[in-house]
């Protein structure tokens, strides 16, 4: 049975740390020792929800990949991505403004979860990391 890694990202889009959070999730998904493997979930909470807004222009302006690009890769790597419903409301983020990877042919999307639901998922995890 896969070990569950849960990564909570609370830092916002200007920081390196959210990238590291999603990178660690993908690193977990890429790790396989014998029959041991990981399932990784990333939950964006607090100002971390700002990472999930689509249409980021980092490549155009700074010539670097955006956290949007990294989230898309994570969705394509079977990483579950959650966003906190209450914090979306606080920052006035609508569901249709969230990053998706449909242009890459990936059906998985960011799932909106209440803070209580996120905490319940954290309780089920074998490892919880705060980024």
């Amino acid at each position: 049975m896969a070990k569950k890694v849960f990564i909570l990202v609370k830092t916002n889009v200007k920081e390196e740390v959210p990238y590291l959070g999603v990178d660690h999730a993908m690193g977990a998904m890429a790790t396989l020792i014998g029959e041991e493997e990981f399932e990784a979930t990333v939950a964006f909470v607090g100002s971390g929800v700002l990472n999930c807004i689509k249409g980021q222009k980092f490549l155009d302006i700074y010539n670097v990949e955006s956290i949007e690009d990294v989230i898309k890769l994570a969705l394509g790597s079977d990483v579950k991505i959650y966003i906190c419903k209450e914090d979306m409301e606080k920052y006035k983020i609508s569901e249709d403004s969230l990053v998706d990877a449909k242009d890459m042919g990936i059906e998985a999307t960011i799932e909106v979860k209440s803070w209580n639901e996120i905490q319940e998922e954290m309780k089920k995890a074998d490892y919880v990391f705060f980024f």
Partner: peptide, 8 residues
Amino acid sequence: MTWFFENL
């Protein structure tokens, strides 16, 4: 990064 998870 996989080193971290292998050792985890």
